[in-house]
Design a binder for these strands. Structure first.
Lengths: 295, 295
DNA sequence: GAGATTCTCTGACTATAGTCAGAGATATGA
DNA sequence: TCATATCTCTGACTATAGTCAGAGAATCTC
């Protein structure tokens, strides 16, 4: 069986077995559209505009769906205080109860998947599910070349500094570190990547070209996105960018407190070299040859 | 996070990410119903009756769906030779080509899930998917009390004898073994279980009551259903049946060639005892006390 | 304050999905 | 051979899902 066949087989079984959980709203005396709306309404209500955007509904269609839920007494729609053109929809007490019912029946279905299994099998199933989830999430992340002066890079760098400040015994002061100029890590002198996951920045990395070698700077991955192999992907992409600009080696410096990063670098083929700069926060300097070791 | 929350979380991600593979038929200039029909039509055609049954379609509705596919030149419907009331639908050459196109685009989607992952991550994903698949399948199996004279038990016993015949050096002749009477393994003297997976019998087991002890006989699991923990479930169910009838111990005999079975028995708490019968094919006799070891 | 824009609602419309009750042709059993 | 059953098709019907073009009210911009 090829990999692709296996993925499709998995799909078939899972949408059949687990996908039924989504049909919790079927079987009720309510259309799928109305049920979905009921389900997706935030507890504190939402304005119709954002609901339309989130669920991808036509304006007229949403009005009518809400009308039906209103007639059932599950939802109340009223005018926004600040902007009287805008209307806000929110669940009534009856609506919240109804949603809890849906929720419980969905729980019961999830439970019915686990029920026939032994304790050991359950553990294996949940572990495998977590793995699948993590790896599918990893596939969702994408690397994007960004302007290092823009909001995405700025956000990531702030997070990066905060991480260093927490990790280093003596804290970290960006002002005391070697300066990284925005121009140095953007075209044509370098590049900056941000990893995006569901429209959220969750990692970054930059490269600075120095002719026949390049320097990797500020590689960071958000705690929420650890374990997805993002650091590896960022490193590899930066190395590719460096190689395209003619670099035959990539260098970086790092602090002894960042042991996970250090093992990552070693794992990627970086070897320790003498200090090539005077970065005060660095304890280790690494290099990886991109030409396969030839000099 | 509770187990149930984890299952539902998995569901949400997977139906979102992987479920898209099913939408291969969306986006085409064809309704979902017609596409599904095109997709599910067996290569050698099928009569409308069985199609209706398999896809759960109304007779009139199916006629119309087929009409549309026929108009597109993808399907041919003609009268059955043997029974002129019956009509058979089959793909034309154009229909087969169309289906291959769908197939390829579905493959491409599956591939797109794997594409962003490293080789190691792919391996982990596929292994986890296989695990999830296996365990969800395991949950699908159900044990059913059956009449040992009926077709389900008969089928399983034939398979069981064939398995023994292949496993034993000198083969296995049911006539030479101790006889198991149908009456002995059905109410009220005993019971017989068959494990069903998607309407197929994939395992069996029987118990014979002897007052304060009971005997387990003919436990078998189909090769296609190994690894789902079925043998364990069957054994545990038989022990429960025995206990309900007042047994404080369960015994069984087995052949030295069945090493997997022997380790299963030991794992379940069976201990070897002296021969309690004269079964010619047996080398080992086991017993498990149901009262927690008290005698 | 006028004109442009934003937001929701209404009415009119289409396609899909599905159900139900026969009609007509064919097969089967007594 | 006749009554009964089986199989597919047609016509009539319903509900859902969704689109599109304004109308009317409120807000923003100049």
């Amino acid at each position: 069986m090829t990999e692709i066949e296996q993925v499709r087989r998995f799909n078939r079984l899972v949408t059949q077995r687990v996908g039924v959980l989504d049909d919790e709203y079927l079987g009720r005396a309510r259309s799928v559209g109305a049920s979905r709306l009921l389900w997706e309404l935030p507890p504190d209500g939402a304005d119709l505009r954002s609901l339309r955007a989130r669920l991808g509904l036509d304006s007229g269609y949403l009005t009518r769906l809400l009308g039906r839920l209103q007639a059932e007494g599950l939802v109340r729609v009223d005018v926004d205080r600040d902007d009287k053109r805008v209307r806000r929809a929110r669940l009534t007490a009856a609506g919240r109860r109804e949603r809890e019912t849906l929720d419980r029946s969905s729980d019961a279905l999830a439970e019915s998947l686990l029920a026939p299994l032994s304790a050991g099998q359950r553990r294996r199933l949940l572990a495998a599910m977590a793995d699948v989830e993590q790896l599918l999430t990893a596939g969702l992340a994408e690397l994007r070349l960004v302007d290092p002066g823009g909001p995405l890079a700025t956000y990531c760098w702030e997070q990066y500094f905060a991480t260093l400040n927490a990790a280093f015994d003596a804290g970290f002061d960006p002002g005391a570190s070697r300066k990284v100029d925005v121009a140095e890590v953007s075209e044509p002198h370098g590049a900056t990547l941000v990893a995006m996951l569901r429209e959220e920045p969750v990692g970054c990395g930059s490269v600075k070209h120095h002719g026949d070698w390049a320097e990797v700077k500020r590689v960071w991955v958000a705690p929420s996105a650890r374990g997805l192999g993002l650091a590896r992907r960022i490193m590899s992409e930066l190395e590719t960018l460096a190689a395209e600009r003619g670099a035959t080696a990539v260098r970086l410096d790092t602090n002894k407190a960042l042991s996970a990063a250090i093992s990552l670098y070693r794992g990627l083929g970086y070897v320790e070299i003498p200090a090539y700069n005077d970065e005060p926060y660095a304890h280790h300097w690494f290099e990886k040859r991109l030409d396969g070791g030839k000099s």
